[in-house]
């Protein structure tokens, strides 16, 4: 459904993504793995059509991502991006205004479950609270693809369970979820495929259950092997 083809992205003189190709298929949950600067965020921003490729493309049902794909691809950025004048409830209203697939009731349930006060100023939220708000906004859409960039960053142990349950709840046979996280152990029980990146290059695509059955290794083991 979401096809990356020979994607290259350069910033100034630096190559962030170096000719990578891979498919994202529905019904699967992907984990993007790689050290900082390996190109995970750059790929997500390109797939979310925020960033334009230097060459190559990301295709959504055969056409380059853009205004149309934004209707069906939901993206949770790794940094705060809301307008500073907003309160938590404003974020729900904003998404309702712009995304036809946004479920406001679900958003309200999620922020309640994650103990985010609806009248809190977005500016005053801690980084963990802000991450929860970004996640709630992204997964309250009935999207076809969810791109979640470091959804566990800044989220304390107690809240992690709620966050991961929220992520699992959007998985279905006709959606795809792509998560980037360096907390491999936390997420490896529920991802189906791992995509290893290093220095903007694609190293390997691995089916997680297959890896365990074939080699008796965990994703974390394989990650350490590949990055040495």
């Amino acid at each position: 459904m979401l096809e990356t083809k020979n994607l290259v992205k350069k910033y100034g003189g630096k190559t962030a993504l170096n000719d990578i190709s891979f498919p994202i298929e529905q019904g699967k949950t992907y984990l993007l793995l790689g050290p900082n600067g390996s190109g995970k965020t750059t790929w997500m921003k390109t797939a979310a059509s925020l960033s334009k490729p230097t060459s190559g493309s990301v295709l959504w049902n055969g056409t380059p991502v853009g205004v149309e794909s934004r209707k069906e691809i939901s993206y949770m950025p790794t940094e705060s991006f809301f307008y500073p004048w907003m309160i938590v409830a404003d974020v729900g209203d904003y998404c309702t205004d712009f995304f036809e697939d946004f479920d406001l009731d679900q958003f309200r349930d999620l922020i309640r479950d994650m103990e985010l006060p609806a009248d809190a100023k977005v500016k005053s939220l801690s980084s963990g609270m802000n991450a929860k708000l970004r996640l709630a906004a992204a997964i309250s859409r009935k999207a076809r693809v969810y791109l979640l960039d470091e959804p566990l960053n800044g989220i304390d142990l107690v809240a992690r369970d709620a966050v991961m349950k929220a992520v699992i709840s959007v998985m279905s046979p006709d959606t795809a979820v792509v998560i980037s996280s360096h907390l491999v152990e936390e997420v490896e029980s529920f991802v189906s495929t791992a995509i290893f990146l290093r220095n903007g290059k694609l190293l390997e695509i691995t089916d997680t259950e297959d890896l365990r059955t074939r080699t008796g290794k965990s994703l974390a083991d394989r990650y350490r092997e590949l990055m040495q």
Binding site: D161, M164, K165, I168, M171, P173, F190, V191, S192
Partner: peptide
């Protein structure tokens, strides 16, 4: 399947 996935924190396919 969905509830089992949530309960054990696994993928719904699993």
């Amino acid at each position: 399947c969905r509830d089992l996935a949530l309960q054990y924190r696994i993928n719904p396919n699993t």
